[in-house]
């Protein structure tokens, strides 16, 4: 590690400034890039189709991608130390599986007129039910047990995935295509009131997670040592679980299941900025927003006017990159030995 091997005020300042700058650059690029070349003069003047495209199509879409990316990345960054597992991602709490199952049920059998509002609503309720079930099933002696939680979450997701396949098989053929499309995850254009509602949910979740930063730093020491330092690791895990359930529920409701953001972004930032969660969590807000905004821009631009599912882009860029990081990390650790 270069320089001071700890979090200093200047590293936090510059780290956050850098991440914010990258996120801003991604957002600006995303607003400018698209199947139509925007005339910025017209946008400024507030006239013509360019103005409509900017305010009604591009800006809401970029805003949604930024919120979902930020939420998923912070939640992953917090779940990894909370569950003491570097492979933890927002999906590991099982909430995305439950939300997806509920949404697919709505897509399969809900009358078409109700599905615009019904699918996100079902997904959010499904997320809540899944969170309650996984939480209860993961308690050992009244405390959320990290290893049990990971096992329960993985099994629950697999269970939901098989039920989704079953629903898909039983559903009317005209519905299956929209189910498959929804499953791939995608950032769509949502009306501003929905964005405001989702934004406030994300804000609550993110603030709850930030509040756990110091406690998360100590969680690797083990519950007893953390407690001897004045921190309740069990309560920290429960808070991170609840906040992540909120964030994941809101994001699955609006965009479907988008993987890899919550896994790759925290690991990359940890490599760059260190493991201290007092910097990692706020940096993940910007990093996650930048990653999903960039991925969504690629998704709608690369084969324009055909749009690719953004989940495919995050997985295709995130997967190989994650392996590269892991390999490099393994080598760095070997070199660091005595």
């Amino acid at each position: 590690m270069n320089g001071a091997a700890r979090l200093t005020a200047s590293r936090r300042r510059w780290g956050l400034a850098l991440c914010a700058a990258v996120a801003l650059a991604c957002a600006v690029l995303a607003l400018l890039v698209g199947s139509v070349e925007l005339d910025l003069g017209a946008v400024m003047a507030g006239v013509g189709p360019d103005d409509t495209i900017f305010w009604k199509l591009r800006l809401p879409r970029v805003a949604l991608a930024a919120m979902v990316g930020a939420g998923l990345a912070v939640s992953g960054a917090a779940l990894q130390p909370a569950l003491r597992n570097p492979l933890a991602s927002p999906d590991i709490i099982g909430v995305s599986g439950g939300a997806a199952l509920a949404a697919v049920l709505a897509l399969a059998w809900m009358p078409a007129w109700a599905s615009t509002a019904g699918v996100p609503l079902f997904a959010f309720v499904g997320a809540g039910a899944a969170a309650a079930f996984v939480y209860r099933a993961s308690l050992v002696n009244g405390r959320l047990d990290p290893y049990t939680q990971i096992l329960v979450g993985v099994v629950f997701n697999t269970f939901c995935a098989s039920l989704i396949l079953l629903v898909n098989a039983l559903a009317d053929a005209s519905r299956t295509r929209s189910i498959v499309f929804w499953m791939m995850g995608g950032v769509s254009v949502q009306p501003w009131p929905s964005l405001a509602l989702a934004g406030s949910l994300f804000a609550v979740g993110i603030v709850m997670l930030m509040g756990q930063a110091r406690s998360l730093n100590l969680s690797g020491l083990g519950d007893d040592t953390a407690a001897s330092l004045g921190f309740d690791a069990g309560r920290c895990r429960a808070t991170v679980f609840a906040a992540s359930a909120l964030v994941v529920g809101a994001s699955v409701a609006l965009t479907g299941v988008i993987t890899f953001v919550g896994l790759v972004v925290p690991h990359l930032l940890r490599r760059l900025l260190g493991s201290d969660n007092r910097l990692l969590l706020p940096a993940s807000v910007f990093g996650g927003a930048a990653f999903l905004v960039a991925s969504d821009t690629i998704a709608r631009w690369v084969l324009a006017p055909v749009e690719l599912p953004v989940g495919a882009i995050t997985a295709m860029t995130g997967g190989p990159f994650f392996l590269y990081l892991l390999r490099r990390h393994g080598r760095a650790r070997a070199e660091d030995g005595p």
């Binding site: 091997a5 730093n217 921190f231 940890r270």
Partner: peptide
């Protein structure tokens, strides 16, 4: 710890 905390970071945890 499972995450790459440096030694000085671990010692500073005692100041939490």
């Amino acid at each position: 710890l499972g995450f790459p905390y440096s030694v000085i970071e671990v010692v500073l945890m005692g100041r939490a």
